[in-house]
């Protein structure tokens, strides 16, 4: 039962749940397609990108960093860093995908987007028994919307003057800002790492070629997060050892 992705009933439920997010994805990906056209991507490349990687942030990173220099490595590294959160998304789907074969697990995971994941988790919380077909149906809708939107935007073939006139050169920055707001957890956890990341990125921007300054900033921020966690851990252990009264916060 749960070993199949092709239960049409469940797929239909999943697809319906993702219709409204799908509309938003359609609009959003239209902009991405227009930017891809600006970046001189070929149509086959664009479609392959949409189908090969599910995750608008990777496309946004690639477009943002495209032709900063001939060096493509920073795009791979930055794409990796921004996509890491999908490891946690995948981990949270362990239960839903449990009965699938390895290849079906891999396929279902490949297709999963933020929207289809969120709808599946919500369905699981409501119904306590959501199926992989639900996730798959929703994912199909999102990926279709994403690809169609991209292709539509690509064929709109706006030139640079149009892009600026419509404010579209701001689009990717806007997307990243929204993502940042969605990713923010708390001052305690995020303020220091993000401050360090921003500082190091700004300081290294001229010193490092291409997009490497972003990687430097990200690494510095991650190290700061690790250092803060280490510090908090030591404080907690010291307080526990001293039998301290009062709340002890663990990271």
């Amino acid at each position: 039962m749960n070993a199949s992705l092709l239960s049409f009933d469940q797929m239909g439920r999943g697809a319906r749940a993702c219709l409204v997010p799908g509309l938003a994805v359609l609009v959003f990906s239209f902009v991405m397609g227009a930017l891809a056209h600006q970046a001189h991507w070929s149509l086959p490349y664009l479609v392959a990108f949409c189908l090969g990687i599910t995750g608008a942030s990777v496309q946004a990173i690639a477009l943002q960093m495209w032709s900063n220099s001939a060096d493509l490595m920073p795009i791979l590294v930055a794409g990796f860093a921004v996509h890491l959160r999908y490891a946690l998304i995948a981990a949270s789907l362990r239960g839903v995908l449990a009965e699938l074969s390895f290849f079906r697990k891999a396929f279902a995971l490949h297709m999963t987007s933020d929207s289809s994941w969120a709808m599946t988790i919500a369905d699981e919380r409501r119904n306590k028994g959501t199926t992989p077909a639900f996730l798959f149906g929703g994912s199909l809708v999102i990926i279709s919307a994403y690809t169609l939107g991209n292709v539509g935007g690509y064929f709109a073939a706006l030139d640079m003057a149009d892009m600026r006139r419509w404010g579209l050169d701001f689009a990717i920055l806007g997307v990243f800002l929204c993502l940042l707001i969605a990713l923010w957890r708390s001052t305690r956890v995020d303020l220091l790492p993000w401050f360090v990341a921003a500082l190091v990125a700004c300081l290294t921007k001229n010193a490092l070629s291409g997009g490497w300054y972003m990687v430097a900033g990200a690494l510095a921020g991650a190290l700061a997060a690790g250092a803060a966690a280490l510090h908090a851990d030591r404080k907690a252990r010291a307080a526990a050892a001293a039998g301290g009264a009062g709340a002890v916060e663990r990271t």
Binding site: A81, L180, A197, L219, A222, G226
Partner: peptide
Amino acid sequence: AIGQAMFNAIPGCLLVALVVPD
């Protein structure tokens, strides 16, 4: 906990490193 803290921080830090200089 420490590895997890670093892991969780990376996506946000990368985006900050991209957004702020821009």
